[in-house]
Design a protein around this nucleic acid. Sequence first.
DNA 1: ACTGGTCGTTCAGTCGGCTC
DNA 2: GAGCCGACTGAACGACCAGT
Length: 361
Amino acid sequence: MSGSRKPKTFKLRALHSQQKFGIAGRSCQEVLRKGCQRFQVPVPGSRLCLWEDGAELTADCFWSVPDNAELVLLTEGQAWQGCEWRAWRCPRTDGFCLSPLVADVSDISRFLSVFHRPHVGVIQAARQLLADEQAPLRQKLLADLLHTVSENIVAETRAEDPPWFEGLEARFRNKSAYLRFSCASRIRTYLREVSSHASAVGAQAREEYTRAVDAMAQKLRAAQYNGSYFDRSTKAGGRLCTPEGWFSCQGPFDMADCASRHSINPYGSRESRVLFSTWNLDHIIEKKRTVIPALAEAVGEPAGRQVDWEYFYSLLFTRDNLKLVHVACHKKTTHRLRCDPRRIYRPQAKLTRRKAVRKRP
DNA sequence: ACTGGTCGTTCAGTCGGCTC
DNA sequence: GAGCCGACTGAACGACCAGT
């Protein structure tokens, strides 16, 4: 009879092993044989137990075990009492519930999945625990948990998530528009700083400096001050976040990535929005110490060459030279990086060629 | 009403000079 | 050499104002 049935599937692991393998068979013996082969252990003396409660898998109960049940392969002399359980009071029924303790990577993964669509009971239980909690560490863990599960990331408009907009001007009607504004505002400040440096440039070079700044300002206006970097509704490539609004720290200026794996979703809650304002756009090649002085110097000694303002534009206002970093990854020490001397002026060959083309009738 | 610019302020950190 | 202090840097925000 069992021969006509579809093979039963299991997840099998060896005792104390983190790795699990999918395995299927039409009988207890078949699964055991395949399992022994997989883990390179002898069949004689080996047996299969349910991971959950340690009960031995026998021919009698083989077909009644749920599909994809987790099994532990035990060799001679080994024993498995089942995973550890802990009791907790369910706020819904006010009765005790049992759940397995976190044991390995896949279990943690399952544990984390609770936060995607948290059961109302989980939230209530956490609230109740937090209300009575005195230990700071547990307070923090519970508060973080509650904060995470109460985020309303999907909501976009003021009507959908009024608390998110608390303290913001009425003109901001959706989250993306506000974050777009916030980014553009930061970048406008950079432009203002570049512009205000004109007074420090020698009188002769000032005109050229102002011309370069004007060109950059025009390009920046056309790009809407690159506000799209913070706007999750922008298409990929134009934003620094995921379509859901998650930003990841890009790490200190001298590192390829963030060792602490900082991340944030300012779209989730008012608190996250406020916290996000402490994240910085860090110039890899420093704006004030390096880029602005280099631009001022370049316009001062052109020697017939034309300053490549677009190169400076990319250094000052674009992600080519900007890293979004958590405040802890924002190193304020001198970066000691220089502008690329080959890119400060437009290539001479091109200029000559352009002039030549212009001279033609 | 919206957009964009300006100004003042805050905060955290680095750096160099000075004093003990 | 250690500690203090002021100047400076980098980044951000809110309030206010002017133009469209």
